[in-house]
């Protein structure tokens, strides 16, 4: 399955790419803001997206809305430092299926993606 990674931090994008590359996912794109992510998503049509929330130009919530409108079946894991419950609920209401707080370990990330791929959302 192909993966789009969206985060304004190069270090976080690399960490996710390394961990999920080992997990067997193929990287379809590495984007730094929501606007670029929507464009890349339209071209590459990945099956799974990891999404930061606080980003320049277009934030993660708006990006989730637009990506979800393009493909309602895509699986979206939010990976964010905004770890309050209200933010997690808001992201899930907008169409994300999983939420992982920063800081996170590779194991945390792989577990969260595993849950997403098995369909155990939330």
């Amino acid at each position: 399955m192909r993966l789009l990674i969206v985060d304004d931090s190069n270090i976080i994008r690399g960490k996710i790419a390394r961990a999920l590359g080992k997990y067997g996912l193929t990287i379809a794109g590495l984007e730094t803001n929501g606007r670029e992510a929507v464009e890349r998503f339209r071209e590459a049509r990945p099956g799974i997206v990891t999404m930061d929330l606080t980003m320049p130009e277009m934030d993660g919530i708006e990006c989730i809305r637009q990506i979800r409108a393009i493909d309602p079946t895509v699986r979206i894991l939010v990976v964010s430092a905004l770890t309050d419950k209200a933010t997690a609920i808001s992201a899930l209401m907008e169409g994300a299926q999983g939420f992982l707080g920063k800081p996170f370990s590779e194991d945390d990330l792989c577990d969260a993606v595993g849950e997403l791929l098995r369909g155990n959302h939330g």
């Binding site: 430092a81 905004l82 770890t83 209200a86 920063k102």
Partner: peptide
């Protein structure tokens, strides 16, 4: 800075 500030929302609210 982003992670520490973002995590603070658990305590300071949405």
């Amino acid at each position: 800075a982003n992670t520490i500030s973002g995590n603070a929302r658990q305590h300071f609210g949405h």
